[in-house]
Write a protein that binds this DNA or RNA. Structure first.
Lengths: 230, 230
DNA sequence: TTCATGGTTCATTTCAGGATGAAGTGTTTT
DNA sequence: AAAACACTTCATCCTGAAATGAACCATGAA
């Protein structure tokens, strides 16, 4: 038992160091970053960053991919992102009292953002709920499933549901949103939806942020296909 | 945005210090501990512990209750416990390769344990799944609901579902189990079930551990009421 | 080949944050 | 009242982990 306890505390320590925490936070947008990029956003020297990153790699929190002279770092799996994201939930909790008074920082983030590789925030939650309500998805045993009706809808979006099912990662599971406190669609299907929406220019990534903005085209499309006013 | 980032990194740092991480880990059993008890299990002096604890209080991670000359520390809310528990999920991930070889530490913990105030481990997961399958519960929108059929079942156990609904805390939501990687029942209802099972002597707490053992009486009752072999 | 760039490694130094000791507060016991 | 206990506070010390500087290794471009 002390074994688990020790492993836990070292893991927590690994995540808990300032520079490393900032790096992990920035990686939440699902992109892979080079070592220097992460060094810059954590405000440490390249050597320092390299040191931190190697520790995170060793703990299997991150993975690296070599590409020419660049090394791209990213989460080793979506579970890590989910944990980091869930920790953020404690933040807003602590501020609950003040929450009424001051407007929350980064309203953009609350409205729509990427959570690792899928959509989160108000938009993500509302889309997920609309898809359930319209009968495109069902939720059972902590897993979303696509209905026959839904298959047609996804087909219209040129999303190949069958192919997504074959991936080794989880197909479609709920992910708890820290800003909305409600679940939204994650997993392979969630990632595919975000990708499609970016390709169709329904949403655009905001420079250096996880925030997304919904284009006029996107608003129209969402209104039409899911009945969402955004 | 840097605001959130900074808040996150300080929070992560708060959780990530060795002594504090061990304290939080130990608090996972849902009990409230005195400062000295926590000092002992984290293997630090009383002053040190006091210092750590006050930081955790300030961050709203823990709460204290004065009781005579003792001060009892516990999580300020179930969400904190859920986050700590979810971090443990990354541990087993890292060990996945080795997992096949060595037998896992603490098989007891995997079989049945407390997760803050409810049941987790194989027993917790199997009970939750059986209750869904028997039609006592349904899962929708990341929330369990008790069916009419289920109302009778809970009534037989002398669990007052209506009263639980009135509590301010979440009624019944899924909590991801790090050892089983499947969801189990948490929230007010989950807490009530564990309490009842302890009172009826279906399960007993193991000394100084989050592990639970299932009594012969409990095995018989579970077999009868939910069809679970344990 | 040479140079520039992106990245890592290692040996050394520095310092933030935890540990410690002494003193102080409040509570219970006798 | 006094003593014992549970705990906190403060001022100081100390250490382990991060930062730094100097090489070093690849890759790619000139």
């Amino acid at each position: 038992m002390e074994n688990l306890e020790r492993e836990f505390s070292t893991l927590a320590g690994l995540i808990g160091e300032k520079a490393r925490a900032v790096m992990l936070w920035n990686l939440l947008d699902g992109r892979a970053y080079t070592a220097t990029e992460l060094a810059i956003c954590a405000d440490v020297s390249a050597q320092s960053a390299s040191n931190h990153l190697s520790k995170l790699i060793q703990a299997n929190i991150l993975q690296v991919k070599n590409q020419g002279k660049h090394r791209y770092y990213s989460f080793s799996n979506p579970e890590v992102a989910a944990v980091i994201e869930s920790m953020a939930g404690l933040l807003s909790l602590g501020n609950e009292q003040r929450e009424v008074k001051r407007t929350l920082p980064q309203p953009g983030l609350r409205l729509a953002r990427t959570c690792y590789d899928h959509l989160a925030g108000k938009l993500g939650v509302e889309m997920s709920e609309a898809m359930l309500q319209k009968g495109f998805l069902t939720l059972a045993h902590q897993q979303y499933e696509v209905t026959t009706l839904g298959l047609g809808w996804f087909n219209d979006l040129e999303i190949d549901v069958a192919a997504l099912h074959c991936q080794k990662r989880l197909f479609a599971h709920p992910c708890l949103d820290w800003s909305e406190r409600r679940p939204h669609l994650a997993g392979a299907l969630g990632a595919a939806i975000l990708q499609t929406m970016l390709e169709k220019d329904w949403v655009r990534k905001v420079k250096n942020s996880r925030a997304l903005l919904c284009t006029a085209k996107g608003q129209k499309a969402l209104k039409q296909s899911l009945g969402i006013e955004f």
